[in-house]
Design a protein around this nucleic acid. Structure first.
Length: 418
RNA sequence: GUGAGCAUAGCUCAGUUGGUUAGAGCAUCUGGUUGUGGCCCAGAAGGUCGUGGGUUCAAAUCCCAUUGCUCACCCCA
């Protein structure tokens, strides 16, 4: 048997309602904040991701689905969406059409990692990008939208963590200070952390090893080395979040793995999923548009993992959806009525009712069971004595009441169903 | 890439120290008087016990290999 590829999954009809529910909340919240949807290709030139996300990041160095197409060009299935959105933004000079572009997206992303709870190789994200503004209100707006969407899904166990990474120059200065602090302890670090010392020294803060944690206990914090402007920006973000009533905690150890972040970074974690607890993450990326060949335009954005969010919703039973109902099921009491049944079904369907009928030549009892199984609100019984008299029977499946109608008086039947 | 655990019916799982035709619940299907659902009752169908090898008189059960899945590390959404 051929099965779906590891780390990919099918969303079966039984699960679709949950996805649509989430999507409708996403559309409405982003719409209320005046964000416009953008759709970009699922694959891009490999160089786009290498330049934006960062050559040395895990995503680029070992997780991308990269392939050569038939002309020999290196293409990559998008591992995240910001790069593609910024590419489109530059390609179509969206900054010339309006000063501030507020965009959102929803769709599949691809990363070749080991699957585990809340982590897939094809996974869905929604997210937003605001390009063209450096206002801290926009940073706060991102966090607020993400929080509102999760809250509207009924999630409770949420923690919003925010931090500021400052501008690249102050961050580099700080990294040197951190290196100096760690130098004497280097030999005591775990093997994993020794590696991080070179690749991404900030990550040492979220090591899970006791010995590393003890060493990091007294390490200097980035926030103490922020330039005044970054500090002021961060302060305004916090004020705006307070104004919006979004609970948050400053976590000066919060580091995000993508190279392009500047100033604000944030993450919302859930206590209701496994160890992959970050439901969404994002931050400001003021150098990215320029890095990708555009003008020097600031940006801020976030992405959220839909599978993780739905997992949290499931575990918290955060929302319940009504069973789907069918307006009408048509039961044929005897054979030979196929054309009448079919024509009737089509007429009601074209009037906007959801209608189904038996395609398997089943007994009346089996047809009734089927009507019940699929939650039909009404059943139309055709055939038998009534049919010979020119009548058909409409049965209300909620209260069991039956009513006869002239078989060609579909308008009246339609009105009593609606 | 590293580590651990688990593979029995469509789904969730039982299966005693290896011992007859491998079970249950749910779901499915058929019946319970001619043409009427839900609840109830009766019955049916459905499994080469992941795959391959080995030990044994005898393997779902023990051993080895292999594949798949799950969870965790790394990292991230």
């Amino acid at each position: 048997m051929i099965k779906s590829v590891a780390g990919t999954r099918d969303i079966l009809p039984a699960d679709i309602a949950k996805w649509k529910h989430l999507q409708s909340i996403v559309d409405s919240v982003f719409g209320n904040f005046n964000y416009k949807e953008i759709r970009t290709p699922i694959f891009e030139e490999t160089a786009l991701f290498a330049r934006s996300i960062g050559e040395a990041t895990d995503i680029v160095s070992k997780e991308m689905y990269t392939f050569l197409d038939r002309s020999g060009e290196s293409l990559t299935l998008r591992p995240e969406m910001t790069a593609g959105v910024v590419r489109a933004f530059i390609e179509y000079s969206l900054d010339k059409k309006q000063n501030l572009n507020k965009l959102y997206y929803i769709g599949p992303m691809f990363r070749q990692e080991r699957p585990q709870a809340g982590r897939f190789r094809q996974f869905y994200q929604f997210g937003a990008e605001a390009l063209g503004g450096n206002d801290p209100l926009l940073d706060a707006e991102m966090i607020t939208m993400a929080y509102d969407i999760l809250a509207q899904l009924g999630l409770k166990k949420l923690w919003v963590k925010i931090n500021s990474l400052g501008v690249p120059s102050s961050r580099e200065k700080y990294k040197n200070i951190l290196r100096q602090y760690l130098q004497p302890y280097f030999e005591k670090l775990t093997a994993e952390s020794k590696k991080r010392f070179d690749t991404n020294i900030l990550r040492l803060f979220d090591s899970k090893e006791e010995t590393d944690l003890m060493i990091m206990e007294n390490a200097p914090l980035l926030i103490e080395y922020l330039d005044d402007e970054s500090l002021e920006h961060f302060e305004k973000v916090k004020q705006a979040l307070l104004a919006a009533g979004v609970p948050f905690e400053v976590n000066s150890k919060l580091v995000r793995g993508l190279d392009y972040y500047t100033n604000t970074t944030f993450e919302i974690v859930s206590g209701s999923v496994g160890s992959q607890s970050a439901l969404c993450g994002g931050g400001r990326y003021n150098g990215l548009v320029k890095e990708l060949g555009g003008n020097d335009i600031p940006g801020v954005g976030f992405a959220a993992g839909i599978e993780r969010i739905l997992l949290a919703c499931e575990n918290e039973k955060s929302f319940a959806l009504e069973d789907e109902k069918l307006d009408l099921f048509i039961v044929s009491i005897e054979k030979g009525l196929e054309n009448f049944a079919y024509r009737t079904a089509i007429q009601f369907r074209r009037k906007g009712l959801s209608v189904d009928l038996d395609y398997l030549s089943r007994s009346v009892k089996a047809q009734m069971r089927e009507a019940n199984r699929i939650n039909a609100k009404y059943v139309l019984l055709i055939g038998g004595e009534e049919f010979e008299k020119g009548e058909i029977v409409l049965k209300n499946m909620i209260n069991g009441e039956q009513k006869n109608f002239a078989k060609d008086d579909l308008e009246k039947i339609f009105l009593s169903i609606r």
